[in-house]
């Protein structure tokens, strides 16, 4: 049901972890729904120097989290803001329809982390 790319990011997730003294942290989802994604940013000169994630959730939740970190690492804040949930799903070669609404929230978590960074 998942593409090879999803399974790759699920079984070898990129950028798992936390950043101590992060420039911004964003979290979406809740444990009740079975998905929590948290993104940590290290921003320098308006660029995402480092990004890490921690996710509680299904295969799609973990794979989209991993993918979004890979997509924006090294990018500027403005470039990162252009990444959508849809783009993340497309980069993974698509997600099963049932997963599009519940587990495809990684870009939202990223945007929240950027908001958090900007508000500081």
């Amino acid at each position: 049901m998942y593409t090879d790319k999803v399974m790759d990011h699920f079984s070898n997730p990129r950028n798992v972890g936390e950043i101590d003294k992060a420039s911004g942290i964003g979290e979406v989802g809740n444990a009740k729904c079975g998905d929590i994604m948290r993104i940590y940013l290290d921003v320098e000169d308006n660029k995402i120097k480092d990004i890490k994630f921690k996710t509680f959730g299904c295969g799609a939740a973990i794979a989209t989290s991993s993918m979004v970190t890979e997509m924006v690492k090294g990018k500027t804040i403005d470039e990162a803001l252009e990444v959508t949930n849809k783009a993340v799903a497309e980069a993974l070669g698509g997600l099963p329809p049932a997963k599009m609404h519940c587990s495809n929230l990684a870009a939202d978590a990223l945007h929240k982390a950027i908001e958090d960074y900007k508000s500081k």
Partner: peptide, 15 residues
């Protein structure tokens, strides 16, 4: 669990 924000996190809020 090492990937889970619910487990041993540095920044546990009042969840």
């Amino acid at each position: 669990r090492s990937m889970s924000p619910l487990f041993n996190s540095m920044q546990i809020e009042n969840r």
